[in-house]
Amino acid sequence: MQDLARRFGGRWAVARVDLAVPRGGACMVTGANGSGKTTLLRCCATALKPHHGQITFGGVDLWRRRALVRPTIALLSHATRLYEDLSAQENLATWARLGGVSADLSDLLARVGLPVGRQDPVRTFSAGMRRRLALARVLLKEPELLLLDEPFTALDPEGRALVLQAVGALRQRGTTVLVATHVPGEAAALCEQRVHMEAGRVVRISEGSA
């Protein structure tokens, strides 16, 4: 990304960030709450339009060619973005149908450690179960660019291992990963690059796993 900036109302949430992540690489973005991590990721996901500068992935301007690149990007965001009144399986079935992909949904549910064949709506799920379901959706998409926003919150140790393992498997296949977190501990093993943000700006870049 070059000289990226995005404003929210009267302030710059991300101000002039220059960052290069190699294709297939993994980068961890750390910083306090409100330092612009989520905005940075949402810009990468083409959920937000950059107000200045641009983000390119594989030589393609993400925002300008968003129709083209959106199928290859997945954002595991803070909000799980599920339909509360549908069951886990129905949620996944909806997304699979809309994406035109056919997958063994029961298998997918089992892989993220959710009970198969249950009809209770997502509304009754705990925060950790929702995140597992959101992870299953990411696996459904098999993205080339994976954006993780605080991927470990609300998850039990088993769930965290699941995320690490899933991300690791995707990386094996060449997926580029960007992780935003304020607890660098677990994500550190995944990432060889690390940037630290303060008030919307990158203040420190370090290479090699910390």
Binding site: R70, P71, R81, L82, Y83, E84
Partner: peptide, 17 residues
Amino acid sequence: STEFEDHALEELLLWPV
């Protein structure tokens, strides 16, 4: 409001639909 309750509309847009 179903779409905005858990920001699912954004996921629809990015899925992309």
